[in-house]
């Protein structure tokens, strides 16, 4: 019974995210009153359903949904949604919802298509340090994803003003300073969580895993991503980089994160798999 319920939610969630994005789109492009009134309500509803899904799945499988890339993707989609709604409430800016939530939808669609019910798992998964490692990774990657979207919106707005277009992007998006700040604050959060991920990983993993290797592709990629964000943050302070440069560097970091996440999990062998 619970299995059917989890399956039903798994199928429903991409549809719910899609409809929520549709409402944000209606409000963004057409100022449609139904979209304007209900977009946030639908997002809250979708996130509640997503939370019920994650809890039900955890009860069904006996472990948190963090054992493979597709389980991680649904958690990332959820944390993106939560982070976005926090930003929306904090800044009162609702016009970026369509873009940020599209990212959550992307993760959720891939997850829903390939996720499997994995009941037998490695006992290592029950460690609290692994919990900290994984939760930090979820929050970190979500923050970096949000930062990348705000970065993209900044570049769109920058281009719109520089080319004297003044279309819907100019009218609807927040000012460049706000977009830059949102992107930068997200990078800072992402970087902090990524640092925790690496720190916990390096302290704990060698003691716990027999075939641990510092040359593991997942570790190397994560280190490279961390270094890119470190350069972006230090350069902003030391070399007084602003706006576009920091955003371009952070977006490179995010693309690399995304590519490596898929490549390492799907194509390369790694000890970093807890099934």
């Amino acid at each position: 019974m619970l299995e059917y319920f989890v399956d039903l939610l798994n199928i429903s969630l991409p549809i719910l995210y899609l409809f929520t994005i549709f409402l944000y789109g209606l409000a963004f492009f057409l100022d449609e009153p139904f979209g304007l009134r209900n977009r946030t309500r639908f997002l809250v509803g979708t996130l509640i359903v997503h939370f019920i899904y994650l809890v039900s799945r955890t009860i069904l499988t006996g472990h948190p949904p963090t054992t493979d890339v597709f389980e991680i993707m649904t958690v990332v989609a959820f944390t993106i949604g939560i982070a976005y709604i926090y930003i929306e409430m904090k800044t009162k800016v609702k016009e970026t919802g369509m873009f940020i939530l599209s990212l959550a939808l992307m993760f959720q669609v891939v997850s829903a298509a390939f996720i499997k019910l994995q009941v037998q798992i490695n006992p290592i998964i029950k460690s609290s340090l692994l919990g900290l490692h994984v939760v930090s990774a979820m929050l970190g990657y979500s923050a970096l994803a949000i930062s990348a979207v705000y970065g993209g919106l900044y570049l769109m707005m920058y281009h719109e003003i520089r080319t004297n277009r003044f279309g819907i992007v100019y009218r609807k998006l927040p000012d460049l300073k706000t977009l830059e700040r949102l992107s930068f604050v997200s990078i800072v959060f992402g970087f902090i969580f990524l640092s925790i991920v690496i720190l916990v990983g390096y302290v704990w993993l060698p003691k716990t895993i027999d075939d641990f290797s510092y040359s593991d592709p997942k570790l190397i990629i994560t280190d490279i991503v961390w270094i890119i964000y470190f350069i972006a943050l230090v350069s902003k302070k030391a070399m007084r980089w602003t706006g576009r440069t920091v955003i371009i560097v952070s977006m490179v970091g995010f693309v690399l994160t995304l590519v490596s996440m898929v490549a390492v999990n799907v194509f390369l062998p790694s000890f970093h798999n807890f099934r």
């Binding site: 009153p33 707005m157 003003i161 009218r171 927040p174 000012d175 460049l176 300073k177 706000t178």
Partner: peptide
Amino acid sequence: ETKISEGAVSVSYAAVELAEKIFGS
């Protein structure tokens, strides 16, 4: 409830609106 009074409709205020789109406050 509507956007009837939104956006600059004079050239001088359009300059202010443009500045706010770049600098925020």
